[in-house]
């Protein structure tokens, strides 16, 4: 269940792949929505750690390419807002924590390494020739 919060923290780490290795691109994904408890403090403290553009893009991607899922409101402002109102935090909560990618692949935009997701668990292991 790769959630978008996790996706936002994972970069390709194959040997020598150090630029343009984030965000990983989703392909052939199956999504599930699961309610999570709303914790505004957690969101506020975690926000500075997010790569905002990557998050906005993957939220868009999730809602556009897989329209057969009812995703709720995935629209986030293009810039991280200064004022955090309840509505914004609820959207952020939904995007970060309630969208679960159960199956699919994450592909490195640079070296094209495929990281498969199966049963909600991403396999980020590297092959022998890819480790440092």
């Amino acid at each position: 269940m790769v959630r978008l919060i996790t996706h936002n923290l994972l970069a390709c780490h194959a040997k020598g792949c150090t630029s343009n290795n984030f965000p990983l691109q989703f392909q052939n994904v199956q999504i599930e929505l699961k309610e999570a408890e709303f914790n505004p403090t957690f969101l506020e403290t975690f926000m500075p750690k997010l790569e905002w553009k990557a998050l906005v893009d993957s939220a868009k991607e999730a809602s556009a390419t897989i329209s057969r899922y009812i995703l709720g409101n995935t629209s986030l402002p293009l810039e991280q807002p200064e004022m955090l109102d309840e509505e914004f935090l609820k959207n952020l909560h939904h995007v970060l924590l309630e969208i679960h990618v159960e199956e699919g692949i994450m592909i490195c935009p640079n070296c094209k390494h495929n990281y498969p997701i199966s049963n909600g668990i991403p396999n980020m292991l590297l092959a022998e020739h890819e480790i440092g």
Binding site: H13, L97, G120, I121, P122, L125
Partner: peptide, 12 residues
Amino acid sequence: IDICTFDVTNNP
């Protein structure tokens, strides 16, 4: 939140 398979000495 999530569980991932990887070697912590080669972590993403």
